[in-house]
């Protein structure tokens, strides 16, 4: 029998400040912005006339993925003006997610509430402003009183639409990203601790080889987290595009 001592949640999520008001999450966020800037800066400095390769090819692939895979699917051609914003959002979230599997960092910055909350609130402000900009006060009408619904049903539908559009959207965006990344991080910690505990089991040496099993699981989950990091960035970005597209063109 071994006793697995799981650390308090704060111990796996928080660190002492690297310097006052600057901790590891802040470091990852700043690094994500710097790395993103560096990638697109280097990509932009390569000769554009020849067939792209290396970092330029990588950056152009991301741009085309955002344009063709997200914007054209959700907003249509007129949504292409949103490419820089959605590209920043996708790159930044992905670069904040991916440190969850990078040795020594091993913490996705989005597994803390602050970043997902800020990004969701930003998206919330952006799609509401877009709605008012394109439809004026008609945005309220098109959001709260969807056409085609019998008038009597507006008593039910309007509060539901208000809650879902203006309250739940930022909340769901925040929680989806935060909870998925936090869950992944906790899973990695759990299997890491379990492997360590089994490899160091002193009471029963027969348990030591069993430690390979959670280690394999840890390796598998690390690979899976790469996918989750991409997927969560993609989901956040595509939902943002859907919200902005819906606010700009309610008929969509």
């Amino acid at each position: 029998m071994i006793a697995l001592e799981f650390p308090p949640i704060n111990e796996i999520l928080r660190w002492k400040d690297l310097f006052p008001t600057f901790n590891k999450i802040a470091l990852i966020a700043v690094a994500a912005a710097l790395i993103g800037t560096l990638i697109f800066l280097l990509a932009g400095s390569k000769d554009a006339k020849v067939a792209p390769k290396g970092i330029r090819n990588f950056a152009e692939s991301i741009v085309e993925f955002i344009e063709n895979g997200i914007i054209m699917q959700t907003m249509g051609r007129e949504g292409l003006a949103w490419t820089p914003f959605l590209l920043s959002l996708f790159s930044f979230i992905y670069l904040c997610n991916v440190p969850g599997i990078i040795p020594f960092l091993q913490m996705p910055a989005t597994a803390r509430m602050a970043l997902p909350l800020f990004l969701s609130l930003l998206v919330w402000v952006v799609f509401i402003v877009t709605g008012f900009k394109h439809q004026g006060l008609g945005y309220i009408k098109s959001s709260l009183f969807p056409p085609g619904v019998p008038k009597a049903l507006y008593i039910l539908v309007t509060p539901i639409e208000f809650i879902s559009t203006f309250l739940v959207r930022p909340f769901s965006l925040t929680v989806r990203l935060f909870a998925n990344m936090l869950a992944g991080h906790i899973l990695l910690v759990t299997f890491g601790l379990l492997s360590e505990a089994l490899f160091q089991a002193k009471g029963n040496p027969a348990l030591i080889p069993v430690g390979v099993l959670p280690l394999f699981m840890l390796i598998f989950l690390t690979g899976f987290e790469v996918l989750v990091a991409f997927l969560q960035a993609y989901i956040f970005t595509i939902l943002t595009a859907v919200y902005i597209g819906g606010a700009a063109h309610p008929e969509h």
Binding site: N10, T21, A26, A29, F118
Partner: peptide
């Protein structure tokens, strides 16, 4: 851990 920290919010 659910409450956002101001320093993370500001830097992020």
């Amino acid at each position: 851990p659910i409450i956002p920290e101001m320093k993370e919010l500001a830097w992020g």
